[in-house]
């Protein structure tokens, strides 16, 4: 039983990091109907920004998260302006292919020696790891911080989308762009803000990921990015609570597969989930069936 609980905690930790990435996928999809495949790489850049903030500039951990969030928000908005905005009225497939191109560009550019370099780096630990024992389940202070920061950010996002003026405009734009324009909303600005917020969350996710699994390298964003994408589809793409739910399920399923079956099967199971969802319920857990989604 305690082994089960232990794995559940591990799974939730992974799931929360996936959730921070999945939210960016789902928000961007909700607004521009684009799967931003470069999103996982924004997450990687966030991990590196956190690394530099702590290792090179000796900033404290909370500030490092802020640095990564701001840096990634800017990166996300720049990607949107340069790569996706010119394709706003092009067929959707053009933007999708461009997204893959942007992803490959970031991965290979950061792999260059004068950028991040291909060698993995050890993510700094700003304080000693402490382990608390709760009835046979050991929880580290790292887990507590990952849980705390992720939950805080998810609550903040939910509040932002549901209770602020900009959030209201975001919801309107996601439902009908033309009508939003005719009702006085600067749709381009809302799209930029959406990319900024989604990327900031991925940046925070990158720092937490490096913090929890302390090794980073330029290709580290690919797998978490793809799994977060699966999570967003699982929960119902375009739906914010769906991304959170799907990501937690993905994290737990993946951890349980490693723990009870075989760790070599965990990626197969993760993508098996995608296939099953697409076969059984393509609109995802919280998605309304029958609505057209691609």
């Amino acid at each position: 039983m305690s082994y089960f609980l232990q794995q559940l905690i591990n799974g939730l930790q992974l799931g929360f990091v996936y959730a921070l990435i999945a939210l960016g996928y789902t928000m961007v999809y909700g607004i521009v109907k684009l799967i931003n495949f470069a999103h996982g790489d924004v997450f990687m850049v966030g991990a590196y920004l956190g690394f530099f903030a702590m290792a090179n500039w000796a900033l404290p951990f909370p500030v490092a998260i802020l640095v990564a969030m701001v840096g990634c928000a800017v990166l996300g908005m720049v990607i949107e302006r340069l790569a996706y905005k010119p394709l706003r009225n092009a067929p959707r497939i053009s933007a999708l292919i461009t997204a893959m191109g942007v992803s490959l560009f970031i991965e290979n550019f950061t792999n260059l020696n004068f950028v991040f370099g291909p060698a993995p780096r050890a993510f700094p630990r700003p304080f000693a790891v402490r382990t608390f024992n709760l009835g046979g389940v050991s929880i580290t202070n790292i887990t507590v911080i990952v849980f705390g920061v992720s939950i805080l950010l998810m609550v903040a996002l939910t509040w932002f989308v549901n209770s602020t003026k900009t959030g209201r405009a975001m919801r309107a734009v996601s439902m009908d762009k033309d009508t939003s324009r005719l009702m006085g909303i600067d749709v381009d600005r809302i799209i930029t803000i959406t990319f900024g917020i989604g990327s900031a969350l991925a940046g925070a996710g990158g720092v937490l990921f490096g913090f929890a699994y302390p090794q980073i390298q330029p290709l580290m964003g690919i797998m978490p990015g793809l799994k977060a994408f699966v999570a967003a589809v699982l929960g119902g793409i375009g739906i914010i609570p769906g991304a959170m739910l799907g990501a937690v399920i993905m994290g737990v399923v993946e951890t349980f597969t490693s723990a009870y079956v075989s760790s070599t099967l965990r990626d197969a199971v993760a993508f098996g989930v995608l296939i099953i969802v697409l076969l059984v319920r393509p609109t995802g857990i919280l998605g309304r069936p029958g609505r057209e989604k691609v």
């Binding site: 209201r168 405009a169 919801r171 939003s180 009702m183």
Partner: peptide, 10 residues
């Protein structure tokens, strides 16, 4: 919210 969102520009 349908009404309020139309006041966004202001």
């Amino acid at each position: 919210d349908n009404v309020r969102v139309a006041d966004h520009h202001r």
